[in-house]
Write a protein that binds this DNA or RNA. Sequence first.
RNA 1: GUGGCUAUAGCUCAGCAUGGCAGAGCACCAGAUUGUGGAUCUGGCUGUCGCGGGUUCAAAUCCCGCUAGCCACCCCA
Length: 418
Amino acid sequence: MPRYEPMRAVRGMRDILPKDRGIWRVAEKAAADVARRFGYEEIVTPVIEAAELIERVGEDTDAVAKELYRFEDRGGRKLALRPEATAGVVRAYFEGHLNQLPQPARLFLIGPMFRYNRPQKGRYRQFFQLDVEAIGGESPALDAEVIEIAATWLREIGLGDLRMDLNSIGDAKCRPAYLDLLRAYYRPLKDQLHGDCQRRLESNPLLLLDCKVPQCQPFKVDAPRITDHLCEECAAAWTAVRRLLDAAGIEYRHDPYLVRGLDYYTRTVFEFYPANRDGSQDALGGGGRYDGLAEAEGWPATPGVGFASGLDRVTEMMKETGAEVIAAPLAEVLVLADAGLEVAAAEVARICRTAISVAVDYEPKSLRAKMRSANKLGSRWVVLLSASEAGRRVAQLKNMASGEQAEVAWDDLPARLA
RNA sequence: GUGGCUAUAGCUCAGCAUGGCAGAGCACCAGAUUGUGGAUCUGGCUGUCGCGGGUUCAAAUCCCGCUAGCCACCCCA
């Protein structure tokens, strides 16, 4: 009865295959290069965190409320696969005593994140993010710095043609008063809003600004804007960030409707999109300031600002925009030996390997077929080995480009191939 | 989480409205070429028709359920 079905990757998970790995490497290397140039160090934190850490930090957001991979281990501990990096990085910042070093701690991380949502192209249940965080500093210059890192990285991997939206959502001091204004504005309109928005009106009115349902759009224009109601400190920071971005030559668009799903964000919020597209599906990255996060985790109040970008989408776009990628390095030499000469072939390969990359074709097929493989793999050289030649410790060395072929002693191969 | 489309050879897909021998191209293997690649030609191998059930003399084809992928929402990255 259990007729078998070959095993496949679980829903929402995917493999990065060798042919695509090159472009990922380019993106990752560029990220590490740019980050280091700005004085950011790499950190690696666990994929598994205490469920409480994740939940405390974003109970109201979909990412946590509906999309969290949550489970218990054999010891009954309540755990979760991280849906984003910031919570873990901030935790590590305190646990690793980075708060005792000169501030801010400048950190970056590349790794997998997990969200249980419906898979689609560019949206996977396991996806990879580049995460950049400056923790322990409240200067708006750090906001601009993080944005500049993001913009520099995207430009260097060929995705410079993008749009950045920018907004400020105030802080604990000025936001409550603003939210009251917003509620007061929307209450008379409540009946005309769609269901979710009616509910959000009292619980999380900021999200009304972010709503994309057509029937809710007309009311946004006249809604009060938070940037008009910032407290003194937030207003100063808002001005400073924009001035710094101008000086850095980074273009942005003030989007008064840009808010962030996560509760701990304060002041600066930003998102990057490809210039020609809209659709939230295409968001390449985003971030903002999270001065309330450390406290939410039970650590001393500590400001921070960060940026995250999805590598799955970024590499997808790099392919579309035809970014130059170095072809995957294949074996430059392929050893083709007759049947039964595996030991000799392996030894010849070992000798060649002191000078160059080598693979052996052990397949039991005709020489013609092996030559076709060598050609398809793009090998520069082929070493042909027959029993009589193996006995004399010589082989035929063929240059695939010129077609020239000559007998060469095994021990002379490295010199000829170098 | 909601709605829609899709699933046939290793890959891309045709066949399905009207049930009746499981197909093409590519890839792979072999030969033309008396051990030597690319081009060309010839031949050959490859299938639980996604999974499970139902209808029927008969199901890739019709019906139901499930799973997975894609698209639009939702949300984000």
